[in-house]
């Protein structure tokens, strides 16, 4: 029953963290724009996420007349389920993991890839031009960036010789962070992973499926109340989990001196999370064709070279 307990604990902690990650992002965005951000509800606006949630729950639930009802309702649920499913294999510490699967990395990649289906479903079921365009863009982007993401994740897998998250962290405890050494496939692979997971979770500069200045709100145009809330939450969970996976695969996971492992894991995860949001509020949005060119002309060949290098390091450098 140990895994059941951890599942409940981890999901609860994740939901709470997501709420305050939202607060963190709003504060960060505000400070970067010389604003104050939320200040009214609670000290420093710390209770703002609760107020937001209560507001979302009270909103009217609107189902557009021409929408495909079943798919319209199913899409936000599936998005949230797939986002939460990836948390199962995130190692927060020695043994603090909901399911230490033999195929941990594959599991994350599979569910990350599935995320696009409910997004497209929402775009199609809304029966709205902007939503459909957003959905199409999401599909095109996911197909392109899934490939470099898989290739980048293969570098730690090849170096550690295992797809289990725990094994990869153990490997880094015995050697060093993969982002640091071996530097040549390690560091560029880490950067590639960050870029591709930015694209996977639809963050600026890769947020063309939503693109509020072009597409109203993209796939979530027709959604109201808590259904919109689920999309919003899933996006934040996905970003948080991507940060956690990046920390585990490339930054040594829970290993670190002085403090218990959980602190280090959370610190590294939050570090990557903040980095992603600094990028979001710094850069502009790419155009669709620029995005595709970047993925296929630069990132995919780069990923292939990095995987090859990792194999060379293992054969000639390692054992």
């Amino acid at each position: 029953m140990h895994w059941l307990l951890w599942s409940v604990v981890i999901i609860t902690v994740l939901m709470t963290t997501t709420a305050w990650a939202l607060w963190l992002e709003r504060k960060l965005a505000a400070r970067m724009g010389s604003r104050l951000g939320p200040t009214m509800v609670g000290r420093h606006g710390l209770l703002q996420p609760i107020a937001d949630l209560l507001k979302l729950l009270q909103k009217e639930d609107i189902l557009p007349e021409a929408a495909d009802g079943a798919l319209f309702n199913l899409a936000p649920i599936l998005t949230a389920v797939f986002a939460i499913a990836t948390v199962a294999v995130v190692p927060f510490g020695e043994g603090v993991i909901a399911a230490d699967l033999d195929i941990g990395v594959l599991w994350v990649l599979a569910f990350g890839g599935l995320m696009v289906i409910p997004v497209w479903m929402a775009g199609w079921a809304s029966n709205n031009k902007f939503a459909l365009l957003g959905g199409m863009r999401a599909v095109a982007q996911a197909v392109s960036y899934e490939v470099p993401l898989v290739l980048a994740s293969m570098v730690p897998v090849i170096l550690a010789g295992s797809m289990s998250m725990t094994d990869i962290v153990h490997y880094q405890q015995q050697h060093s962070w993969i982002a640091l050494w071996p530097t040549l496939p390690g560091l560029p692979a880490f950067l590639l992973f960050l870029l591709a997971s930015l694209a996977e979770s639809n963050r600026i500069p890769f947020d063309i499926p939503e693109a509020e200045s072009e597409l109203v709100a993209g796939v979530s145009t027709e959604y109201t109340g808590m259904k919109f809330g689920l999309f919003y939450m899933a996006e934040y969970i996905h970003t948080l989990v991507s940060s956690a996976i990046g920390a585990a695969l490339f930054l040594g996971g829970w290993s670190g001196p002085f403090a218990p492992g959980l602190h280090w894991m959370l610190l590294k995860t939050l570090g990557l999370f903040v980095f992603i949001y600094v990028v979001r509020w710094t850069l502009l949005r790419f155009r669709q064709d620029q995005l595709m060119r970047l993925a296929w002309v630069w990132l995919v060949p780069m990923g292939l070279v990095l995987v090859f290098m990792a194999a060379v390091v293992v054969v000639w450098g390692g054992a």
Binding site: L101, D102, I103, L106, W107, L109, A110, F111, G113, L114, V116, I117, W120, M136, V139, A140, A142, V143, E146, V150
Partner: peptide, 24 residues
């Protein structure tokens, strides 16, 4: 489990996405 993961990644994630494209 490996086969299951691959099935999800390639068929549900990849092939489905391409079919959606084809339909659209």
């Amino acid at each position: 489990p490996f086969l299951a993961g691959i099935q999800l990644l390639l068929y549900v994630g990849g092939v489905m996405t391409l079919m959606v494209f084809g339909v659209m």
